[in-house]
Design a binder for these strands. Structure first.
Lengths: 188, 188, 188, 188
DNA sequence: CATGAATGAGCGTTCATTCAT
DNA sequence: GATGAATGAACGCTCATTCAT
């Protein structure tokens, strides 16, 4: 019965925030984000109560986007190594295709106001990857290592690989494979 | 332009900054750091021209402290695995012994104003570790992987391990060993 | 320009404003008043052009309510002291029975945007009291004092009495009588 | 050893606040007050932590100023009526001489953030008047009325008188005497 | 050189009012 | 007319940095 809250505008703000965070960091003014999104600065606060809330939701959105990309077309039946490799490749491909999202996510990961709840929800988006890794872990040399630690190792190796790929895009494919090999040796 | 009078005060400020960063993050006011250091807020700027300068120097100081700890008593002759293991152990021990320094360093690592020069200097403090790793690399499965990437993997696995240790100090030793084993499999 | 559709809604807004002013003061957001009234924030502005307009109308409404209560059943014939005492008693009774209205009115009285016109209209609602007082004045010690000042004294003594009653409701009746006695001595 | 906090600047801010409150009300921007005082807006906050703090201190300052003026040269020995009359005259004179202070004080009296402590301290500045009044009360028709109520009546009659004087300055003296007579009849 | 007051740009958020639905 | 999203000016307060003492 009135103008409905537009999902489009919400997305525009989130997208703008992604871009602005990349160029200006987490201390970027909300006014700048609003402007980049093409809305009035006050409007930002009809979609997100506070700056922290905006950043929490963006964190989740980006994490979900990443997980989504990584998990596309995962076929449960096949060889675990094959499956993990496919996830890995899609993950790395996402990182190269959406450098802004990746960078923004890296910054948000370190934002002081991301709540534990948000982080937990973020982890949940990657549950399918964790499941796959769990299968691998129980049959390999990390059989006795807690799952949480194995996941952390996966993440840290992925991050290092992404950084290396970004630093030298000409050899991105090579780095991706090397990173996966290292990962496989470490966890399988 | 010349070295400021009291090196003691400089240290006090750096120490205070470490503590304050841990509790308040990188956006902590310089006035707060000065107060924690027991000096006037204006004095901070006679020792460090800007906040960014302070944080750059602190970054270096902490990196050096960490490298120093890790490289203590390194004996060049012995088996590379032994050497790397010793470095690893001292590194992890430092992280557990100085949690503030570790946390502050982690934050500074993502501070937008750390200059490439500072980062380069930071890497240099770990040159001895890199040398050792280089030796290992050339004789193992990462023979064809660029050294920079291998170092990055070492760092990322170390970070993941430190976090896991901090999360569950009762099993810190176990995590440390598991982390080292994973590292060794990955890079050797 | 014409009277808006629902007088009921208008009342709801005025009532809500009364309540909200008591708890939040004159700086209470119009959105909060609208919500308390159960209407959309935009709707408030179809009934009252501006916040100031709303507050002016509320001021009048409350003043009229108060005067109305005070003047109920006034019998013109009887002894002026009796008449004034009845007015006084009903006035005090109203203040104790509708503390929200009283408090809101007290706040509105100092609201910067109450126009002279509104204030004049407010005075008119109390004209009957003024007439009665005029009768008393001309026969007593304030014979030579301008009527406006006498009315002001009545009001100020009433306000002080109401406050004292509110502060110690157990002795409200006593305060009321003491206040009236003081008033009578002052003006008769 | 550094620039000392200047009492002059503090006074300048309080004076500026007085003037600005009179013209713009309590919602006047702190920036405007600072500008009027000839200091940077940030400086205001080195002298007063918050706007509310500034207003509380101003309230006290003005109350004290008023009490001071009213109590000048009070001679304890003489006839209570004489004493009260002198206080009354000085009080009214102050109100006419410093209309800004009076108006600002009237507004502050109604400011939502004046703390009970500030109000209590304000009352204490008028303790000598209360003492004098107490003496009068115990010997007159308000013998059985609580002191607090008598003080409230004094204040309310004074306020009404001041307003009437301000409205018609040509007859200020007359109003002052009429007000005092009414007061004396009411409380003595 | 030490101190801490002075400065003023800048920020997150609010809110009266307007307007698309 | 009713709704509530959209708007953008405004505000209180912070804080890196400068400067008078």
């Amino acid at each position: 019965m009135s103008r409905p809250r537009s999902d489009e505008k919400r997305k525009a703000i989130l997208d703008a925030a992604t871009r602005v965070i990349v160029t200006q960091g987490l201390s970027a003014p909300t006014a700048g984000i609003a402007k980049e999104a093409g809305v009035a600065n006050g409007s930002l606060f009809t979609y997100f109560e506070t700056k922290a809330e905006l950043f929490n939701q963006l964190y989740l959105e980006l994490k979900a986007d990443m997980a989504n990309a990584a998990l596309t077309d995962l076929r449960p039946g096949v060889d675990p190594r094959q499956q993990l490799f496919q996830v890995w490749q899609r993950w790395m491909a996402w990182a190269m295709a959406c450098p802004d999202k990746r960078r923004a996510l890296a910054q948000l990961d370190v934002y002081g106001e991301i709540t534990p709840e948000t982080r937990a929800a973020g982890h949940r988006t990657m549950a399918a990857i964790a499941d796959l890794l769990e299968d691998i872990r129980t049959h390999g040399s990390m059989r006795k290592v807690p799952m949480g630690f194995v996941v952390a190792l996966l993440n840290s190796i992925a991050e290092a690989t992404i950084l290396a790929m970004a630093q030298d895009p000409a050899h991105a494919r090579k780095r991706s494979n090397e990173g996966f090999d290292a990962l496989w040796r470490a966890v399988a």
